[in-house]
Measured scan of single mutants.
Amino acid sequence: MASQGTKRSYEQMETDGERQNATEIRASVGKMIDGIGRFYIQMCTELKLSDYEGRLIQNSLTIERMVLSAFDERRNKYLEEHPSAGKDPKKTGGPIYKRVDRKWMRELVLYDKEEIRRIWRQANNGDDATAGLTHMMIWHSNLNDTTYQRTRALVRTGMDPRMCSLMQGSTLPRRSGAAGAAVKGVGTMVMELIRMIKRGINDRNFWRGENGRKTRSAYERMCNILKGKFQTAAQRAMMDQVRESRNPGNAEIEDLIFLARSALILRGSVAHKSCLPACVYGPAVASGYDFEKEGYSLVGIDPFKLLQNSQVYSLIRPNENPAHKSQLVWMACNSAAFEDLRVLSFIRGTKVSPRGKLSTRGVQIASNENMDAMESSTLELRSRYWAIRTRSGGNTNQQRASAGQISVQPAFSVQRNLPFDKPTIMAAFTGNTEGRTSDMRAEIIRMMEGAKPEEMSFQGRGVFELSDERAANPIVPSFDMSNEGSYFFGDNAEEYDN
């Protein structure tokens, strides 16, 4: 993207840094990872977990959730003011799984939030270390993106479920800051804005008074975040219109849905970061690795190297396929839920299948599930090659597409044709070009129609051997075009429920 120079890199967003050079960025990201790792080690000690239990991804998720809940100030305040039966607002906890007599047992633990905050700050040299908290939120978000298709949420806001490739980060909490905003897809931002506008339509006082002023500035800020994701002048001009509207209503909703559809071809720039579970960072720190000293990046080879040398386990339900569970977590670790499966298959070195073909449910185990038949197995999170994460949407291309997802959002900077089903997408653009945004709409449609099938995206960008740390010898991959490109292809993934 041309304006790259004016933006802070995501590592800076990730670490609240002012302008830093590459070495400083690597050190501050490393410091953040160190903090998460030290916190995780301490929690495993508190909970008396064995090494194996500490490497269980379900335990990692519970521990991450506990610290996120302990620092969720708004919710904590709300819980104190609106006490609900049987919930102690000062405590947080969740299921911890232990191996007892050759069987997995679930144990519900409860801790004072104050105590968890103390352990977290102690692991982070006394700081609140917001960057580390956001990092864990993005890992949870990436896992949700890989596990669930947001059909219901899309339909509720009037969008087409086939636009799911635009929904990265749709389950990120509001408090995820600049680093969170960077990884949100165009569809996620559109959905947040539509929800806001709908509230304004239904509630006369939404934009009024002292609160209304705050609401208005939040609305304009979200519009600017979305505008910054678009790469064409016409899309940005249309966002200006939406932002400046005196009284946002149905016309703005129409414009936003139009823009979301246009992003299936004229893709937005959305950041991709490899955020790993805390149970990967903990053992690495415990083994003596100093992330701050060595430096770390979320968008280069580092996460690949770390996963190459990590042992992570997962509980497996009786009829689940461990290899499929591994694929789910591998995609989440690489922030690749909406990437082209052919690119992923090449990088991973084994075939990556669409969601609907995987015999696996989510990673988390519900409290009512029976533990008797639970097994555990090693997650295979290694890769054959590594590639640089991208934040450009890439230019655009036609490809055989599917009944489910009709476009992709690249996660890796790797040369390819970008699949999208042009006739299906263009069919949504018939007729409606009147109104105050008509010239911009016409211009956007013209650009979409001009998108050429034979153009290559990320020209000359390749993948790298894991021994090639400096990215000196790019390998331009070859793809098996007979395979499906979309992950949520004609899909039956479970729906995400809060």
Rank of each mutant, 00 (worst) to 15 (best):
S3A: 15
T6D: 00
T6N: 03
K7Y: 02
K7E: 11
R8C: 04
R8M: 01
R8Y: 00
R8D: 00
T15D: 00
T15A: 03
D16I: 02
R19H: 10
A22E: 03
T23N: 12
T23S: 15
E24A: 09
E24W: 02
A27I: 06
S28P: 00
S28K: 15
V29S: 07
G30C: 10
K31C: 12
K31V: 04
M32T: 11
G35Q: 02
G37N: 08
R38I: 11
I41N: 13
Q42Y: 08
C44L: 13
C44W: 14
C44I: 14
E46K: 06
L47H: 07
L47Y: 11
K48A: 14
L49K: 03
L49R: 09
D51H: 02
Y52K: 03
E53G: 04
I57R: 06
Q58T: 07
Q58A: 07
S60D: 05
L61R: 01
I63Y: 07
V67M: 14
L68Q: 10
L68G: 12
A70R: 03
A70G: 15
R74I: 02
R74V: 09
R75F: 03
R75S: 05
R75D: 09
N76P: 00
Y78N: 05
E80P: 00
E81T: 06
E81V: 15
P83F: 03
P83K: 03
G86H: 15
P89Y: 13
K91S: 02
K91Y: 01
T92C: 09
G93I: 01
G93P: 11
P95Y: 08
I96H: 04
Y97G: 09
R99C: 09
R99D: 04
V100G: 12
K103W: 01
K103M: 11
M105K: 10
R106E: 09
R106W: 11
L108K: 08
V109H: 03
D112P: 08
E114S: 04
E114P: 01
R117T: 09
R117Y: 06
R117A: 07
W120D: 07
W120R: 07
Q122A: 04
N124W: 12
N124R: 04
N124V: 04
N125Y: 13
G126D: 03
G126C: 13
D127R: 11
D128N: 15
A131K: 00
G132M: 09
M137C: 08
I138G: 03
W139L: 13
H140A: 03
S141L: 03
S141E: 09
N142V: 04
N144G: 11
T146V: 08
T147C: 13
Y148A: 04
Q149M: 09
R152Y: 05
A153R: 06
A153T: 12
L154N: 02
L154V: 14
V155N: 07
M159W: 03
D160H: 08
D160Y: 08
P161R: 09
R162W: 08
R162P: 10
C164A: 15
C164Q: 05
L166F: 01
L166H: 06
Q168D: 06
Q168A: 15
G169D: 05
L172R: 03
P173W: 00
P173A: 14
P173M: 02
R174P: 01
G177E: 11
G177S: 06
A181N: 09
A182Q: 11
A182E: 04
A182T: 08
V183T: 14
G185E: 14
G185F: 03
V186N: 05
G187Y: 10
T188N: 04
M189V: 13
M189Q: 14
L193V: 14
R195Q: 06
R195W: 10
K198F: 10
R199W: 08
R199L: 05
I201F: 04
N202Q: 12
N202D: 02
D203H: 08
N205S: 13
W207E: 05
W207H: 02
R208C: 02
R208S: 05
G209W: 03
G209T: 08
E210M: 08
N211Y: 11
R213V: 06
K214L: 06
T215P: 02
A218Y: 06
Y219W: 14
N224T: 12
L226H: 11
K229E: 09
F230T: 12
F230R: 02
Q235S: 03
R236A: 03
D240K: 02
Q241N: 06
R243I: 06
R246C: 09
P248W: 14
N250A: 13
I253F: 12
E254Y: 10
I257D: 00
L259G: 13
R261Q: 13
S262C: 11
L264T: 12
L264F: 14
S269R: 02
S269W: 09
V270F: 09
V270N: 13
A271R: 07
K273N: 13
S274E: 07
A278G: 15
A278I: 13
C279Q: 05
C279K: 10
V280Q: 08
G282T: 07
V285R: 02
V285I: 11
G288C: 13
Y289W: 08
Y289E: 03
D290P: 14
D290S: 09
E292H: 13
K293G: 14
K293P: 07
E294N: 15
E294I: 03
E294G: 13
G295A: 08
G295M: 10
Y296M: 11
S297C: 11
I301R: 15
D302C: 12
F304P: 05
K305V: 07
K305A: 08
L306S: 09
L307C: 14
Q308V: 13
N309C: 01
N309I: 10
V312N: 12
Y313E: 04
I316S: 05
R317A: 06
R317Q: 04
P318K: 14
N321I: 11
A323M: 09
H324I: 04
K325H: 09
Q327A: 03
Q327M: 08
Q327E: 11
W330Q: 04
A332K: 11
C333I: 05
A336W: 00
A337D: 03
A337M: 09
F338N: 12
F338A: 13
F338C: 10
E339S: 00
D340S: 14
L341G: 08
R342E: 05
V343K: 07
V343F: 01
V343W: 00
L344W: 05
L344M: 14
L344Y: 08
S345Q: 10
S345E: 09
F346P: 01
I347Y: 02
I347F: 13
G349M: 05
T350Y: 00
T350L: 12
T350V: 08
V352K: 12
S353C: 08
P354Q: 07
P354V: 09
G356K: 12
S359D: 00
T360Y: 08
V363E: 08
I365W: 10
N368H: 07
M371W: 02
D372Y: 06
S376H: 12
T378S: 15
E380H: 07
E380Q: 15
L381G: 08
L381T: 15
R382N: 15
R382D: 02
S383F: 01
S383T: 15
S383I: 03
A387C: 08
I388W: 02
T396V: 06
Q399L: 07
R400E: 08
R400F: 06
S402E: 04
G404P: 02
Q405W: 11
V408W: 02
V408M: 15
Q409A: 15
Q409G: 03
A411W: 01
F412L: 15
V414P: 00
Q415K: 13
N417C: 03
L418W: 00
P419N: 02
P419H: 10
K422R: 15
K422M: 14
I425A: 14
A427R: 03
A427F: 00
A427C: 15
A428C: 15
T430H: 07
N432M: 09
N432D: 01
E434P: 12
E434W: 06
R436V: 03
T437K: 11
D439S: 00
D439R: 07
M440H: 09
M440C: 07
I445R: 07
R446M: 05
M448D: 07
A451M: 05
K452D: 00
P453Y: 01
E455G: 14
M456L: 09
M456Y: 11
F458L: 12
Q459H: 12
G460E: 04
V463N: 07
V463T: 07
E465K: 05
E469K: 11
E469Y: 09
R470P: 00
R470E: 00
A472S: 12
A472P: 10
N473K: 11
N473C: 12
P474I: 01
I475Y: 06
I475K: 05
P477E: 03
P477M: 03
S478Q: 15
S478H: 12
F479C: 15
F479P: 10
D480L: 03
M481Y: 07
M481C: 09
M481R: 15
N483I: 14
E484F: 04
G485T: 00
Y487Q: 04
F489K: 02
G490F: 02
G490M: 04
G490P: 00
D491Y: 12
N492W: 02
E494P: 11
Y496T: 00
D497F: 10
D497S: 14
N498R: 15
